[in-house]
Simulated assay, not measured.
Amino acid sequence: MYEKEFISSLTPKQLHYLKNARVGVVGGGVIVELLQRWHFKEIRVLDVVVQLNHLYMDPFFKKEDVGRFATYEPLTEDICIKVSEMPESIDGFKYELRGVDLVIGFCDQKTVAVAARELGVPFISSGLITTFLPDGLRFEETSIPDPIILNPSLTSMMRSIQSFEAVKLLTGIGYPLFAPEAIKIDLLNYELKRVRVGRL
């Protein structure tokens, strides 16, 4: 009953898109749990083994995860979650992300963005949050750095916005942001600022 009410804001056609969508995610944690609740068909996670600092920066990770890859329990049997080691090259990312509909970034963003573009799929950036389309502004033409995460609240908010941008992009609800427009999170002043990304 709750699941039916939760997704009632989506039309059957929009929900169909999500239930058949495959998303690649760089870095795991809370974003995987958020994406599950939108019923993505496949969530492909590229990550490193959990370290102690991950426990403080992302509320998903537990003490028993330290030293190994995090495990995720799919909410339903229709959801597939695959976890792989973070590749070291563009070709490695392209291999691991083949067949996905979009990619959500976190670290090593320049490499991941190039891989996504060469695969012909959108890339949702981290830190400054926006979507780079394969035929639009190139990530490597901008000055977006990899995010420096200083607290768990920022991690959770950033990953939440990224996941919803993915939903908007695939369903057509709302107005997804495309580069050079981006969202900057200012927790100190409780603001989401709409900014333009700098160009190199």
Results as ranks from 00 to 15, higher is better:
L52N: 09
P87A: 10
L154S: 12
I148G: 04
A116V: 00
V103K: 06
P74C: 08
D58A: 13
K62I: 07
I185H: 01
N189A: 10
I148E: 03
R194S: 11
V66W: 06
D146M: 04
S125M: 03
M158T: 01
M158G: 11
P147W: 00
G174H: 09
E141M: 07
D108N: 12
E88I: 04
D186I: 03
F164T: 02
P147L: 00
R194I: 13
R159H: 14
E118P: 12
Q162P: 07
A179S: 11
G67M: 10
A115D: 13
Y95C: 14
L150N: 15
L133C: 08
R68G: 11
T71P: 10
F139L: 01
K94Y: 05
E140P: 05
F93E: 14
K62V: 00
D78N: 13
L119Q: 11
Q51C: 15
I104Y: 00
M158C: 09
Q51V: 15
E96V: 03
D135S: 11
S126T: 10
V121G: 06
D78G: 04
I161A: 00
R98F: 14
I90Y: 03
P145L: 05
E118D: 15
P176C: 07
A182K: 06
P87F: 07
T131P: 03
K168P: 02
I173M: 13
K168D: 00
D186M: 02
P152L: 10
D135N: 12
A166L: 02
G136C: 04
E191C: 09
L187N: 08
F123V: 04
A116L: 04
E141V: 05
K63N: 01
F178M: 07
G120Q: 11
F93M: 11
M57S: 15
Q109N: 12
A113E: 05
E165D: 03
L119K: 08
Y175E: 15
K82M: 10
I161T: 02
V167T: 09
L75P: 02
D78H: 06
N151V: 08
S84K: 15
I144Q: 05
D78C: 06
L169F: 11
I161M: 10
R138D: 13
